[in-house]
Amino acid sequence: MSILVVTAVAAEADAVVAGLPTSVGLTVAAVGVGPVAAAAGTARRLALAEAAGRPHTAVVNAGIAGGFVGRAAVGATVIGASSVAADLGAESEEGFLSLDDLGFGTPTVVTADPALLAALRGGLPDAVVGEILTVTTVTGTDASTAALLARRPEAVAEAMEGFGAAHAAAEAGLPFVELRTISNPIGPRHRDGWQIGAALSALTAAAPAVGALTAAR
């Protein structure tokens, strides 16, 4: 299996590479922040690999994230059972309406590939498994945190790229899974309390399980 691992920024890519044996056949690339950059960057790398005659056969989105308090603590590793476009939709007097609610026919949830999910769970038995939300604005208040959880009660973490990368993988007909490590609790924004270094170290520690996915199918 030839796996493309996409991250938002170079520091995340470096953290993944630091935990991989040199013999593992993975391509790790930073594709930018946000779902649009993730979708475009993932699609471009998939197309280039196919054109070169070395097509990828699976996609992993890896990086750091915020964790919902009581569900994914700072330093924890999280595996996405699904990646959700949590703020893609419309406001209404009755509350938020997703694209599914609006009847646009475009799914806002991409379910992780069962084989990749099972393999990561086997390699990371202490990881938290649940929905990882993709947002375009990082949640920064108690009210918005509560609103997200009311809409997505299975959510454990939020980041900004998962759904974009997942959509690109789905368009290419490839299996996908999202892996995150937690740098901060979701809620009021206290940047001084974020533990980005610890989350990157946790990402390095989780990387061997990603490398083992090359033999998962």
Results as ranks from 00 to 15, higher is better:
90 A>W: 13
121 R>G: 10
6 V>D: 00
213 L>Y: 04
37 A>M: 11
198 A>H: 03
20 L>W: 10
32 G>S: 06
188 P>Q: 07
103 G>D: 05
13 A>D: 00
89 G>Y: 05
96 F>I: 12
93 E>M: 14
108 T>C: 05
170 A>N: 06
53 G>R: 07
202 A>D: 00
81 A>N: 01
36 V>S: 05
66 G>C: 09
134 T>D: 04
191 R>G: 00
172 A>V: 09
164 G>V: 14
216 A>N: 12
101 D>T: 10
15 A>D: 05
131 E>C: 09
208 P>K: 12
116 L>V: 14
114 P>Y: 03
111 T>L: 09
118 A>I: 03
73 A>L: 03
4 L>V: 12
39 A>V: 07
201 S>H: 14
56 H>E: 05
31 V>R: 07
101 D>I: 13
216 A>M: 09
82 S>F: 03
214 T>C: 10
9 V>M: 15
173 G>T: 12
173 G>N: 04
109 V>T: 15
157 A>Y: 01
44 R>A: 13
51 A>E: 02
165 A>M: 03
44 R>C: 01
83 S>P: 03
46 L>M: 06
158 E>T: 06
102 L>G: 03
198 A>I: 15
41 G>E: 02
207 A>E: 06
63 G>K: 11
95 G>W: 04
120 L>C: 15
79 I>G: 01
69 V>M: 00
168 A>P: 06
37 A>W: 04
214 T>W: 00
50 E>G: 13
126 D>R: 15
3 I>M: 02
199 A>M: 03
